[in-house]
Amino acid sequence: MTRPYAGSVDVIGIALKEVRPGGRHTGLVFYDREKKSKRFLHLAWHYMFSNEELGSDYFIYPNSNFNLGEVEYLAERAQRLWDVNGPKIAYGLDYNGQRVFDEDLKFIDRDGAGLTCATFVLAFFERCGFPVAELSSWLPRKSDDAFQKWVLDALSCKLTPEQYARAVAAVGIAPRYRPEEVVACFSHYDVDPINFPDAQVWGCAVLKEANMKIT
């Protein structure tokens, strides 16, 4: 029997949307106590980190292995991350687990560092003490190259020289963490980080369940 992935989230979870055939977008879903509503926290583009009302066209993914104290802590940290950064988080292609948020969750904007929508989610959980993915097991795929070149072309005029040089060096070299694989890692995570082979298989299951194109 195939396990269900999508469900409901009360305090903290992940959202996924197909923005074009073969292209997905992801981010955090958390309950905002002040606004008394669920918010979508995501990296939309370069220095376009966003906290907005969650749209109805997103699939929502919970993790039942976190206890109440953990999910409340994560939701508080998600709110804090927005409060200290606003939109100022850079886009980048070569996240490998290096620390990109300081102790106060401020984005460390140096050395050309940046994140994608998917690696933002990974970096957030890693900084909070929950490494949902075994980053060292990830390998670059031939299909990563096309996505990375598209990002580089689209952002080239917006990047600093340092950011541009780092992005160029990442194309075809840095592994890509796909949104559906991040969803799978989060959904399965309990104690041990999820490795790349399992994330690939389970990521395809996430797409199949949501009737999204498998690439």
Rank of each mutant, 00 (worst) to 15 (best):
G7T: 03
D10Y: 10
D10E: 13
K17C: 14
K17N: 09
E18D: 15
G22T: 03
T26W: 04
T26D: 05
K36C: 05
K38M: 08
F40R: 01
F40L: 07
F40V: 05
W45H: 11
H46S: 14
F49A: 01
S50E: 03
N51C: 05
E52G: 06
E52K: 14
G55E: 10
S56I: 13
Y61N: 03
P62W: 02
N65Y: 06
F66V: 02
Y73A: 02
R80K: 12
R80F: 15
L81S: 01
N85D: 06
G92E: 01
L93E: 00
D94A: 09
D94S: 12
N96D: 05
V100C: 05
V100G: 01
F101R: 01
F101T: 06
E103I: 12
D104G: 11
F107M: 09
I108K: 10
R110D: 10
D111G: 11
T116G: 03
C128M: 14
E134H: 08
L135S: 10
L135P: 07
L135H: 06
S137H: 04
Q148I: 14
W150Y: 15
V151Q: 02
L155V: 12
K158Y: 08
Y164W: 09
R166E: 02
V171I: 15
A174E: 02
A174C: 14
E180T: 10
F186M: 03
S187I: 10
D192S: 09
I194K: 03
P197W: 12
P197H: 05
V201P: 04
V201T: 12
C204S: 07
C204F: 03
A205N: 07
K208P: 02
K208V: 13
K208Y: 11
N211G: 12
T215W: 13
